[in-house]
Design a protein around this nucleic acid. Structure first.
Lengths: 291, 291
DNA sequence: AAAACACCGAAACATATGTTTCAGATAGCG
DNA sequence: CGCTATCTGAAACATATGTTTCGGTGTTTT
């Protein structure tokens, strides 16, 4: 070895001493190593939102003569570990009942998650999601309920939704009783209910209550015949296959995120303006770390 | 899309019908596929002892419009990505002002999410996750902190973890001040911190406090140089690329779920017994709907 | 033998790339 | 306040890149 230090490590260790703009460049490079190997310097600079000169300066700052040298290093790295997905699967399978049981488990989890995810974006689901969006756009208030393991996805949606709409209510029962928050729900509102087997009683009750008040329901659940999905306006059925005792809520979360993205895209300028305002407000509160 | 044939196969099948010089070029390309991905066209031509024009002609001979298209194909093969980031971006842009804009957006979101997910389960990440598990198993108390958009993933882990271990603490600041919950943290404990750009001040402060008390930190974040990741025991770097203004936390959530699954798998019978006990307790409380 | 044809490589071309230069901006300090 | 030192981005620069053009070569066809 000797002088052949790993440039990536060097970039990390020197990161603190770099100028702000160089940090931006360095950060992009660290986060997208394959870009260095495959794309041009100017293209990388463009993606990092930095002028080309900054990248050249970064090179000399970390003691690299030329971009070529840097690129070569990353190309070799890329060639050394052609850890393709398929190859990885084969390797892990070969050593199935072996010492690296853990690796195999994680590999299998990854595949399952990807399957769950693609199942959530089939054409039928996509059109259901678009319907859901229309329902949300026309609703007076949007209630979101998800208990237990479904709570993260519900929270995620409520959190993002609140950044550009103020008619969202996360029914989390954190303060006082659960039912209080649903008071006044009616036919012009909308309830988004999340939950998979085993169905949590609270969630089902919330759905039943909403329906009794003629409030339409969007069900994000694991089956067309789940107690949450009965008579729902839209049934967003997500797979939650998992290797562990615990169902996977990855697909639910992803779908909720996709709904938010879709709402924003359809909302156009107005939505973006509200987001900007919300973020500025957060910045005022000193929520975020400065650059 | 649709007619997305494999260009390498095309090269092989058409080989016989090519002119001698083109065969020389084709042959070199077949023998050195990574050269196509990494080097320039002229460089490849030089190595193949062929003028550049021959390579261009070869492109049109096999029905490829431009060398870029050819190179992109080989780059994707090298990365084993079903669709390149650039390609995806172009596709989405192309159909931006279209009738079925929504469908395209969702389709593109799905692909991005899958990319994020596979990036979270690369061999390096897998080994980091296993290290993380060992750290968790040896910790006295396990603190989990994630604010804002990172909260779902933190909650998810804490919720599942509590079903089979009782030394987990979700630092959510719901009651009283944030710092209170970290009181007494020390070198035998462990802090799992989640957060992506823009970094929420509270999270960073929690990390700094933990480090000042010599408590090791596991960082689930978006970059090796994120303020959360500095001096972390394990850096679990997850991609959060997203089509919307909002980062995607799908990969974070999935990784946390995977950690739980891994912990349970390594925990063996004991873990399963505890889970059974926890579920029975929940059933006693009438949490779930009966069948 | 001449014409028609496919094939080839040097050179021309417009564009893109990596690097350097320079002038303005910004922050630190006496 | 002024002075310095650093940082930054636009522009300039020489070079490299992908593609096209064009004339030349050899082979086939009539």
């Amino acid at each position: 070895m000797g002088v052949q230090t790993d440039l990536r490590e060097k970039l990390i260790s020197d990161y603190a001493k770099l100028s702000p703009q160089m940090q931006k460049a360095a950060r992009y490079i660290l986060d997208h190593p394959s870009d260095v190997a495959l794309r041009s310097m100017r293209a990388v600079a463009r993606s990092a939102n930095v002028p080309p000169s900054t990248v050249t300066r970064l090179m000399s700052a970390i003691g690299v003569e030329t971009w070529q040298e840097f690129r070569d290093h990353y190309q070799n790295r890329l060639l050394d570990q052609p850890a393709s997905y398929a190859q990885r699967a084969r390797e892990t399978q070969r050593t199935e009942n072996d010492a690296n049981r853990d690796e195999h488990l994680l590999e299998s989890i990854c595949r399952t998650e990807i399957d769950n995810l693609s199942a959530a974006f089939t054409p039928e689901m996509v059109s259901s999601m678009i319907e859901t969006c229309e329902a949300i756009e026309n609703a007076r208030q949007v209630f979101i309920v998800g208990r237990g393991a479904a709570y993260p996805a519900a929270f995620q949606f409520a959190y993002a939704y609140r950044l550009f709409c103020d008619n969202g209510v996360l029914v989390d029962g954190h303060s006082g009783t659960f039912g209080d928050e649903l008071r006044g729900i009616g036919r012009r509102d909308l309830l988004i209910a999340l939950g998979a087997k085993p169905y949590i009683r609270d969630t089902v009750r919330a759905v039943e209550f909403a329906r009794s008040q003629h409030c339409p329901v969007i069900a994000v659940t694991d089956s067309d015949v789940s107690p949450i999905a009965t008579d729902a306006l839209c049934k967003l059925v997500v797979r939650d296959t998992s290797q562990s005792f615990f169902q996977s809520f990855t697909a639910s979360l992803s779908m909720m995120q996709a709904l938010v993205a879709l709402l924003v895209a359809r909302g156009g300028h107005k939505a973006l303006q509200r987001i900007a305002a919300a973020e500025e407000q957060l910045a005022r509160f000193d929520t975020y770390l400065e650059e």
